[in-house]
Design a protein around this nucleic acid. Structure first.
Lengths: 226, 226
DNA sequence: CAAAATTAATAGTAATACTATTATTTTAGC
DNA sequence: GCTAAAATAATAGTATTACTATTAATTTTG
């Protein structure tokens, strides 16, 4: 993805952070290196002390940006889904044909991530790996309901809703567009995961991509009788 | 589910436990109350000290059954998928019609769990809630690959494969039966979760069940031209 | 009934996920 | 260029966690 817009910023609900990490160089380092460290060692083995060491900063300084490592994960997942939404809008905006739009949307939501040069301190390829491995941990907690009410998961839900709208635009008779949208988005993460760790329960490999599988699935499921 | 077989035991890979919890009354209490406590407070807030208190036993005694709370979770998920496999086999065995068999399989994999009186110390309804909330945490770790090699996730993978076979029996031309099987099984857990926590991104409610959604999806996706 | 196995009790450890306080450095306005 | 405010760093401390190790008491079994 090339530099198309120079002043874009992915919006993150304010409740998630104490101080906006995009507002300072330390904050940006926190984002940059937390992505590297979480991808490398997994979320469980990540902590603010290690992160501080890597960025030559102090644990206590990181706590001035984020309440907890959980909130940092919520920030990263929100950023990711905000970025996906941005691509969904940008890349389908000018498409008028509903089927073409649908196919493009599926492709965006199921493809392997490419680096986006618009955001220098975010490595989108590593972040995508974090989403595959850790996304569900951001909401599979006892606090989901309160955090959901406070808007922590808006970015993700907006992506599902936008994709659902694209499905409905193609076939207004289909009754389960939200569930289908959610199934494709989550399912794509699973297929990517299985390809890496559980090869025996997926058909996805170097020849068949998650995009192939889900394109076929969606088209057959909501196909309009022609 | 009524008592059909009196001497069945769900088989769990030996590597998962130090001492078979089904071999003693303390072991059975560990299973019974860990299910209650994990369902109640979530896996993160669960530990062996609390469990010991609840069963009037000592933390150190629990460690003689399981190396870690992670392995106990792997045990519970293995038990669950073993139990699902048992239902899949039992309830579809005598069905000769491929479509009927497929519909029954989807129903088993997506339905809301009912108590099974065959296993007195396992509350399957609570265990199903644990699977919805915690299943992915059993494998989304840095040790997946080694644990997978040691057979920790066999029960789950066997369910996917059996369902995939049922799909193939209905339509041998369909090329993505494993991915579809996995998508339905994981997707069903997600739809149940969304129904409870993220209502705005699912169509499942009191009128539309996950079974309805996935039955429609699978039939359309693999329908044989008639 | 004695030996073996199991369970309980106690203590201890390194790491985690923070909080609180104070000191130092950086930045911004005048 | 100075001062005040803001940001960051350093230090220390806490409760909890996820265990391990050792010994003692109890239960089971041959």
């Amino acid at each position: 993805m090339k530099k198309l817009l120079s002043n874009i910023k992915i919006e993150i609900p304010q409740e998630i952070y104490l101080k906006d990490p995009e507002s300072s160089s330390l904050g940006k380092k926190i984002l940059e290196y937390s992505i590297i460290l979480i991808e490398e060692g997994g979320f469980e083995n990540f902590n603010f002390k290690k992160l501080g060491k890597h960025i030559g900063s102090n644990e206590s300084s990181i706590y001035r940006y984020f309440d907890s490592k959980h909130k940092l994960l919520v920030y990263l997942t929100s950023w990711y889904w905000g970025w996906i939404e941005y691509q969904l809008v940008l890349e389908t905006y000018s498409i008028t044909n509903a089927k073409e739009k649908l196919l493009k949307a599926i492709s965006i939501l199921t493809r392997t991530t490419k680096q986006d040069t618009n955001f220098s301190y975010i490595n989108e390829v590593l972040l995508n790996q974090i989403i595959i491995n850790e996304n569900s941990k951001s909401y599979l907690t006892k606090d989901v309901d309160t955090e959901n009410k406070e808007g922590y998961f808006m970015s993700y839900k907006r992506v599902v809703q936008r994709f659902s709208d694209i499905i409905t635009a193609y076939n207004s008779q289909y009754k389960h567009s939200l569930s289908l949208a959610n199934t494709v988005i989550e399912g794509a993460l699973h297929q990517h995961y299985n390809r890496m760790h559980f090869k025996s329960i997926t058909n996805c490999n170097s020849n068949i991509t998650p995009s192939d599988f889900f394109t076929d699935l969606v088209l057959k499921t909501i196909s309009v009788n022609e």
